[in-house]
Each structure stands twice: as structure tokens, then as C-alpha cells.
Design a protein around this nucleic acid. Structure first.
Lengths: 206, 206
DNA sequence: GTTTGAGTACTGGACAGTCTAGTTCTTCAG
DNA sequence: CTGAAGAACTAGACTGTCCAGTACTCAAAC
């Protein structure tokens, strides 16, 4: 019939992974039962255990798999068309993209999931921080370095500047989201955060 | 014997609260059993249930009780001896206090505990955010407003400025702490964060 | 002597992980 | 293309453990 490029086993594996992320994000690690995952994946519990030796391994694998999505975000902050007169506009656009991406409910939920279990899975938190967080910051830093080279910004420590940039933008909305279940930021909120953050950043670094 | 100003009942109550915070912070809400708490409080489980109808109620009460400690931090940011020539120095001192307080392991652990259970206890996260977070920011905002009135800072929106100030200072270390089990910030780190954050802030708001 | 709590056993439910018996998919030889 | 061997999968029962919450008995405090 259709071109099922993947074997049954691979398909099931995928189904389990997809279901597992969803349930873990919705109910947390302790709140999730293997039966839940099997049910949502439309797979028998036995199959889950065939693919993943136990719940911990499943969790680790599933969470680490999400770091792959960070690549997309890196592209987001890697390039910025930097003409002098439109610097503020360009930075605002960049800020907007960053904010929109990072305030998506999925992203926030994932963040909560990792933080909540950072005690039980320390290496998971550390790895995700490196592979997700620091990689984006490093890329943002090189972008700023490039702007500094052209004389558009005055920057000693580009990584610090990247940290300040994201701190100015994200501290408010991310904190709010961490503590509230999910208060939905409106587009207008994001506009304000982006504009205000960029204005402060330019005040400090131009 | 001694002047037990408090009845036995009150003492037990206190013992339970103290023990509960400790265990909850160490092992998280689901990881904590009522037996653990009773044992640490040197109290029978029955007594725990006499004072708190169930585990959820105990958790709520114990977490909300911690907001009282925020009062101390508010004093920290309420006053700043603002002479023009030492503004940077004073702000740096303020930043230092803020950083030192908020990067204490207990504070971070409490933060994690609340975030981790914000789904299960939404009103708890919201309340803690208001009573803890926003109150400090509001106080910081009025402090900045006062500085602006004296012409020492140029500020449209004092609350936004307070948010930016804390974002510049705390984004890096708090994030790091949230993801890593507890990486201990050295005094030198804190010095750097404070100095760099204040420099950026003054660039933006003076 | 009555209230309060300690100690401890118990109930009932949830859940990780295993086991079994039967079913479907895949593959590869003929 | 056919069909048998074997792998992967299903369904559901089962074990052992953990834990919230209750019940009951006995000692201490007031």
C-alpha cells in the first residue's frame, strides 16, 4: 500500500517517544505512569519496556531528544541583517523572535519539567543547559561580536552582552510563566517586552 | 520548668511545619511521605493529621508560610543612601545584596519546589509570585522612582526598570541554579554579576 | 481522669516491572 | 508468489512495594 519507509518497530518507537514527551510534559515525571504512555502511544506496555529498559531511561532519552529542536532556534539568532540605521529595528525583530519562541507553552512546559526533576536527574539538567541554553547564548554572542566589529555596538564581553540581552527580555515573562500554570502572553505583551528590552540594551551597549 | 510560653500543641505544630518545609525542599512534593515528616518532626503521624487535614493542605500552608521571610528582603531593597557621586557604588551594593540573598541554596530550592508543583497547585504559584516576587519588584521600583525624582536616573516606568535591573543581575545565575542541582556561586562570581549588571543598568537608565 | 499524643498495625489504591498465551508483521527460502 | 520461521506486538493478569489516610491501644501530660 503506502510507502512505509519505516519498519513497524521504528514506527512504534517513535509513537512511544512522542506520547512520552506529551504525557511527561502534561503530568510531570512522577505523575506519569507507564500505562499512561503505553495507552497514548496505542502500544502495549510490554512494547514500551522492549524499547526502553525502564522509566528513567525513557525519560532521559525523551528529554534529551528535545535538544535537537534547539537547532532551529540557533538559526533564529545567528543571522541579523545589520545596517546601521535599522539596528534598533533589527534587534527588535530578533528580540521578538526570541520571545515568541521561548514563551510558547511547550517550551515553558519543557523547561518546568527539567527544572522540576533537576534533583533526580542532575546530569539531564546540566546537559540540557549546555546543549540548549548555552548554545543559543554563544550564537547570540558571536552575532553581537559581529555587530561590535562593525562599530554598531560597544561590547567588551560578547557573551555577557548576550546574557544581558536575554535577561532584559526574558526575565519577566519567563518567571511569570514558571510560577503561573500558563498565563498566555498576548502579542501586545511580547511587543512591549521586546521594545523595552531593546531600548535598554541599546542604552547600555551603544 | 522552663517558661514554655507556648502550649504543647503549638510546639508540635511548629515542629511539623519546620520538618515539612525541610523534607519537601529536599525531596519534593511527591517524593515526600507523611511518615518522613512525622519522623523528622519527632511526632506521630496521627498528630500530623490532627493539625493538617491532608498532605495537600500541609504543603500549601507550609509553602505560603515562607512568604513571610520575604519581608526581610524587602527591607533590603527599600532603602538606598543615594548621593550622586556614589550612585554606582550604592547600586552595586544593592545588587550584591540581592544576588547574595537570591542565590542562597534554600531560596533556590524553594523556588524549584514551587515551580515544580505549579501545575498541581496553581494558586500556590500565583500567590507566591505576588507575595514574594512582585512585592520585591514593587519596592525596588519605588526606590528607583525616588532616585529618578532626584535626577539621578532617567526612568519612565519604574516597575519596568526594576524588572530590567533584576533581569540583568539574576538571569544568568538563577537559570544556572535552576538547571544544575546546585553549582554554588562563588563570591567572585557574584561580584562579577553585580558589577556587570549595574554597569549595563546605568548605561541604560542614566 | 480526661485530653493529647506515641506507636503501630491496617486498608485500599496506585504503579513499576514481569509473565504468559495468543496474534500479527516481516523476511527469506523455495 | 507462497508459506513457514521467527521476531515484534497485544491484552491482561500478576507481584511487590510504597504510601495516604484510618483505627486502636497504651502511656504521658495537664
Amino acid at each position: 500500500m503506502e510507502e512505509t519507509a519505516q519498519s513497524r518497530s521504528v514506527r512504534k518507537h517513535q509513537a512511544i517517544v512522542t506520547a512520552a514527551i506529551e504525557v511527561f510534559m502534561a503530568k510531570g515525571y512522577p505523575g506519569t505512569s507507564m500505562d499512561d504512555i503505553a495507552k497514548l502511544a496505542a502500544v502495549s506496555k510490554q512494547t514500551v519496556y522492549k524499547h526502553f529498559t525502564d522509566k528513567e531511561k525513557l525519560f532521559r532519552e525523551v528529554v534529551l531528544a528535545t535538544t535537537a529542536q534547539v537547532d532551529a532556534m540557533i538559526d533564529l539568532v545567528a543571522h541579523i541583517p545589520a545596517e546601521a540605521d535599522t539596528l534598533e529595528e533589527n534587534l527588535t525583530r530578533l528580540a521578538h523572535r526570541l520571545l515568541t519562541t521561548l514563551t510558547q507553552p511547550q517550551v515553558l512546559q519543557l523547561r518546568r519539567l527539567i527544572i522540576a526533576n533537576a534533583d533526580a536527574f542532575p546530569e539531564l539538567g546540566a546537559t540540557w543547559y549546555e546543549r540548549g541554553f548555552e548554545r543559543v547564548l554563544a550564537t547570540l554572542a558571536t552575532t553581537f561580536q559581529r555587530l561590535a566589529d562593525r562599530g554598531l555596538l560597544r561590547i567588551d564581553d560578547p557573551l555577557l552582552a548576550a546574557n544581558h540581552f536575554s535577561g532584559l527580555l526574558l526575565w519577566i515573562p519567563v518567571n511569570q510563566a514558571m510560577f503561573h500554570g500558563g498565563p498566555q502572553h498576548t502579542r501586545a505583551d511580547i511587543d512591549r517586552y521586546a521594545a523595552a528590552g531593546v531600548r535598554a540594551f541599546l542604552g547600555a551597549y551603544r
